[in-house]
């Protein structure tokens, strides 16, 4: 009798507890690997660390120091430069490739899709090493072509050319990847819309502007936001390509400066501050982008 009652009690209890047990692993891992580090880094940004054990409360001292730090502003400028390059160069190229490879007039589509997608399969480290050779001032592939026109550009040796070199490398690596998103979006547009536009007398350009682009809006929003976040978190490519941001911090990015402060200079409080400032920058830009692209709009 007692045994039966106990079993019923357990049965009732497990009905309540079981769902929480099933979702517990995610929340447990989230708290350990995300929640705790997030809160810890926020607290850390209010302190300055010294060595491995001592720390002192500085309030918003790290934030005021950061806003007066010329290398931070230079890194921010470089990062913004890369992000704008991504938006204005990489994404239009990705969209163009997607349109071309979605067209019925192009042959060998599967091969071309794979070929354009393939660079993203190469690890960033190797991409940087390969492009180090490509951009070599005297013997590099790029300058071999430019030399024909009497130019010899120090892609990785002259301050003005470092970020364009990083942007072009980013285009090579990521345009094919973003192309896949656009391609999926293009294939989801109903053919009837184009037929209706044709009936209304729309030419190719008008169909593109009034049918393709509006239909692609969710995909464009996703690609723009994700690319922007990726651009703002840029690290490995310029770190290796420019040997740590040289010359004269021309290749330094925010995350690179964060890494240097945290791991090379042992200024962990300052590094945490950079991390939080970057978080707010990303959050604000993402919200503004989503707003501009009409993702919050009720339809």
């Amino acid at each position: 009798m007692n045994r039966k009652r106990r079993t019923n009690l357990l049965w009732n209890q497990q009905q309540k507890i079981a769902p929480y047990l099933f979702i517990a692993p995610f929340y447990l891992l989230f708290v350990i690997f995300m929640g705790y580090p997030l809160i810890s880094s926020l607290v850390m940004s209010l302190y300055e660390m010294r060595g491995f054990q001592s720390r002192i409360f500085v309030g918003f001292g790290n934030f005021t120091d950061l806003f007066g730090d010329p290398i931070f502003w230079k890194s921010l400028k470089n990062t913004a430069y890369f992000a704008i390059g991504t938006l204005t160069l990489q994404l239009p190229i990705a969209l163009l490739l997607a349109i071309l490879l979605n067209s019925k007039f192009v042959k060998g589509k599967n091969f071309l899709r794979l070929a354009f997608f393939a660079p993203v399969l190469v690890a960033g480290v190797f991409v940087a090493i390969i492009f180090n050779l490509v951009y070599d001032q005297r013997a590099g592939l790029v300058n071999q072509e430019f030399i024909l026109f009497g130019k010899e550009i120090g892609w990785l040796n002259e301050e003005n050319y470092v970020m364009p070199a990083v942007i072009l490398t980013g285009v090579w690596q990521w345009a094919g990847f973003n192309m896949i998103y656009f391609l999926a979006g293009l294939q989801g547009i109903r053919q009837e819309l184009y037929e209706a536009a044709a009936v209304d007398g729309a030419n190719w350009w008008q169909a593109f502007v009034h049918v393709t682009l509006p239909s692609l809006r969710p995909v464009i929003a996703f690609v723009v936001v994700v690319s922007m976040i990726g651009s703002l978190q840029l690290f490995d490519l310029p770190f290796i390509l420019t040997n740590g941001g040289e010359p004269a911090d021309a290749g330094s990015t925010i995350v690179m400066y964060l890494y240097k402060n945290g791991f090379q200079f042992m200024r962990l409080g300052y590094a945490a501050t950079i991390g939080w400032v970057l978080f707010f920058i990303i959050a604000v830009i993402s919200i503004v982008q989503l707003k501009l692209l009409g993702i919050f709009r009720d339809e």
């Binding site: 180090n132 050779l133 001032q137 390509l241």
Partner: peptide
């Protein structure tokens, strides 16, 4: 001459050495 590539151990630098530069 400035180092070819990004440091003395860069393949571009080795190439310049081989070319007698």
């Amino acid at each position: 001459t400035p180092v070819y590539g990004t440091w003395h151990g860069d393949p571009s630098n080795f190439a310049a050495m081989q070319d007698g530069k």
